[in-house]
Design a protein around this nucleic acid. Structure first.
Length: 105
DNA sequence: CCGTTGACGTCGG
DNA sequence: ACCGACGCCAACG
C-alpha cells in the first residue's frame, strides 16, 4: 500500500474544518499524523491553491492569524465572513472557535 | 544528495 | 505581553 502523501492527509483534515471554526497548523499536523510537522502544513497550504480547501481556517498557535501569502487582510475577511472576529493579529474567543476542540472540557 | 527556505511551535529572557 | 533562539518537517534549487 502506497502511503498517502502528507499533503493529501493535511488537505483532508483542512476540508473537515467546519465553517465558523478554525484549527492551528499544529492541530492539523497532529490530525494528519505528524504532530511536529506544523511547518510542513504551512508548506502544503502555500503550495495548495485548491478553492475547495478552506485554508483560511488554518491559523497559528494561540489563535494568531499566521501567514496567508502575505495577505493577512484577506484571511481576516474570510474568517470574519464566517463569524470569526479577528482583533489585531489574533482571533477573538479563540477557545470557542478552535476545532476540533472548542469550548469543551 | 545536500543546503536553504518557509502560511510553525515551544521555551526562555 | 513582546522579542529572540532552537527545533521540527516537507518542498525547492
Amino acid at each position: 500500500m502506497t502511503a498517502p502523501s502528507f499533503a493529501m492527509r493535511v488537505l483532508h483534515v483542512v476540508c473537515r474544518i467546519p465553517p465558523g471554526r478554525a484549527a492551528t497548523y499544529g492541530d492539523v499536523a497532529a490530525l494528519a499524523g505528524s504532530p511536529r510537522a506544523a511547518r510542513a502544513v504551512g508548506t502544503v497550504m502555500r503550495t495548495c491553491r485548491a478553492e475547495g480547501v478552506p485554508c483560511h481556517r488554518v491559523v497559528a498557535a494561540g489563535g494568531r492569524l499566521g501567514g496567508y501569502g502575505g495577505r493577512p487582510a484577506m484571511k481576516r475577511a474570510l474568517l470574519a465572513a464566517e463569524g470569526i472576529i479577528v482583533i489585531g493579529a489574533r482571533i477573538a474567543d479563540w477557545r470557542r472557535v478552535r476545532w476540533p476542540r472548542g469550548a469543551r472540557c
